[in-house]
């Protein structure tokens, strides 16, 4: 075979790519991991990692994980209901494609401009805040709402979590074949029974992998929370950022240990995600 002779040299073609990936992805990642186990005077140590399990650091992780979990579950549930509503037979096709297009934009619209959009809407001087106060005599800030707290951040995160869920789950919902629903109903199953015994079990791997994606999305987010709270909230990415912008931590290796911790959490997520993804692909055509 003439291909045989060339084969051992074929990998040379991929060298530029792997060199690049090494220099800008693997090397920095390795640096973070190594730094997490270094002490200030350069020796190896486990003390940074031990710190992560004590206050205040363990609390930062708790806040971050809580926030990611809440926005992933709420965004996932709402996104699923919206995608399902749009997929129903009676919903006009233009509504469906408008939601799909808008979700594509909104899932990619985040960070500083999004934070400001919510400040202009629901901030202390926001348009909706003013409208509710002047027209309907509801003062949301007196009633306990505050955009600049963790609850506020969660509310804003839903703005990109819900669209992401719609984008990810809509193909899975479309993959539920009409015949299955018709077969179930001709055997006397109610709509509820169909979802309980057929729809949800089939969608479960897709739903779970979508929730994991949303969790990672919120867990890694930095800009939106930073802009809303001016960097004064105790989420892990914000604390890491504060070290580099304002020297809050005394030990630089603690920032690396915090980053390493994020890596571990996300790596666990990916390890659950991959087999789920494979399972959900089974039902897609």
């Amino acid at each position: 075979m003439s291909g045989r002779r060339r084969l051992p040299l074929a990998w040379i073609g991929t060298v530029p790519f792997f060199v690049y990936a090494f220099a800008f992805l693997l090397l920095p990642a390795g640096e973070v991991m190594e730094g997490a186990f270094k002490s200030v005077n350069g020796g190896w140590t486990l003390s940074n990692m031990r710190e992560l399990f004590h206050e205040p650091y363990v609390g930062y992780y708790r806040t971050s994980i809580d926030l990611s979990l809440i926005t992933a579950l709420a965004g996932g549930a709402l996104g699923f209901v919206i995608a399902y509503a749009a997929s129903l037979d009676g919903s006009p096709a233009w509504v469906r494609s408008a939601f799909a297009t808008f979700s594509g934009v909104a899932a990619n619209f985040g960070g500083i401009p999004l934070a400001f959009a919510f400040i202009a809407t629901l901030g202390t001087l926001g348009i909706v805040t003013n409208f509710l106060r002047d027209q309907l005599h509801i003062n949301i800030y007196r009633d306990g709402f505050n955009l600049y707290t963790t609850t506020g951040i969660e509310f804003v995160y839903l703005y990109f979590q819900i669209p992401l869920m719609i984008l990810v789950i809509a193909p899975a919902i479309d993959g539920l074949r009409r015949e299955w629903r018709e077969a179930a109903s001709s055997l006397g199953a109610s709509r509820l029974q169909f979802w309980r015994h057929i729809g949800l079990p089939i969608l479960m791997p897709s739903l779970l992998s979508a929730i994991i994606l949303l969790f990672g999305n919120a867990f890694a987010a930095y800009a939106t929370a930073y802009a809303l709270t001016s960097g004064a909230t105790s989420l892990v990415p914000i604390v890491i950022g504060a070290y580099y912008t304002g020297n809050v931590l005394s030990n630089p290796h603690l920032a690396q240990a915090l980053a390493f911790g994020m890596f571990i959490v996300l790596a666990v997520m990916v390890m659950i995600y991959i087999p789920l993804q494979r399972r959900s692909a089974r039902w897609m055509k």
């Binding site: 990642a29 640096e31 930095y222």
Partner: peptide, 21 residues
């Protein structure tokens, strides 16, 4: 697998590594 790595190494982690390297 490499294309999934940026999901595990988000920008906030990547920048810490890049600045040090």
């Amino acid at each position: 697998a490499l294309a999934l790595l940026p999901f595990v190494i988000p920008p906030i982690v990547l920048v810490v590594g890049l600045l040090n390297v």
